Amino acid sequence: MNGMNDTGVAAGPASGRTSRTHRFRGLAGTGFVATLAAMVATTLAAALARAVGVDFEIPDGGETIPLPGFAVVTGFFSVVGVVIAAALLRWSTRPAERFVWTAVSLTAISLVPPLISGADAAATTALLGLHLVPAAVMIPTLARSLRTRTD
């Protein structure tokens, strides 16, 4: 009987580490899929805006933002969001709630540059929308993942 108890005790800490690793892997997988979805959605929305006549010209430099640029920037900041979610999963007692507050705050801050860029009204409106598209994909997906990982 002692052999069975010893096995149960030894398996306890290992399963705790496995559980934590599983939670982080699950969050990373969910974050990866959500990042790809956000990149595709944002790039498609930018292509649609361009198709209806929005030119994403940067007023100071006269250059136009290329479609792949939307995907790259969306991918980068989505990965930053996944890292923030992972940190909150590790160190917060309420990771989902804290993530939503943080992500919504950062999204609000991200709306400032299009407003002060000096672009025309169509480009400014499109850029504001293009900031909200990935937020609409990433925030609920990661918050839901954080809730299911901690319950």
Results as ranks from 00 to 15, higher is better:
Asp6Thr: 08
Leu44Val: 15
Thr64Gly: 04
Ile139Leu: 07
Leu36Trp: 06
Gly31Met: 11
Phe70Asn: 07
Glu63Ser: 13
Glu57Thr: 15
Ile139His: 07
Leu106Val: 13
Ala37His: 01
Val133Ile: 14
Gly53Ile: 04
Thr102Ser: 15
Asp6Gly: 06
Leu27Cys: 09
Gly53His: 08
Glu63Asn: 11
Val79Leu: 14
Ala103Cys: 10
Arg149Met: 05
Gly16Lys: 09
Leu128His: 06
Val9Leu: 08
Gly31Lys: 11
Arg94Met: 01
Ala87Gln: 10
Leu128Val: 14
Pro59Gly: 04
Val100Gln: 12
Thr150Phe: 04
Leu89Tyr: 06
Arg90His: 14
Ala119Asp: 05
Leu130Arg: 06
Val82Phe: 11
Leu27Thr: 04
Leu44Cys: 12
Leu130Asp: 02
Ala71Met: 03
Pro140Thr: 12
Val54Tyr: 06
Leu127His: 01
Arg147Leu: 05
Ser105Trp: 03
Ile116Ala: 10
Gly62Cys: 11
Phe56Gln: 10
Gly53Leu: 08
Gly61Val: 08
Pro113Gln: 12
Leu106Pro: 04
Thr93Arg: 13
Gly12Phe: 13
Ala85Val: 07
Gly62Thr: 09
Met39Phe: 03
Leu89Pro: 10
Val137Gln: 07
Ala121Met: 04
Val82Thr: 14
Pro95Cys: 00
Pro13Tyr: 02
Thr42Pro: 07
Ala122Ile: 01
Ile65Pro: 02
Thr18Val: 01
Val82Arg: 12
Arg23Trp: 03
Ala49His: 01
Val80Lys: 02
Arg90Cys: 00
Phe56Lys: 10
Pro95Gly: 02
Phe56Pro: 10
Ala143His: 02
Leu128Pro: 04
Val9Cys: 02
Thr93Gln: 09
Gly53Ala: 09
Ala14Tyr: 08
Asp6Ala: 12
Phe77Gly: 01
Arg17Phe: 12
Arg144Leu: 14
Glu97Tyr: 05
Ala28Lys: 13
Gly8Trp: 04
Ile109Ala: 15
Asp60Gly: 04
Thr21Trp: 08
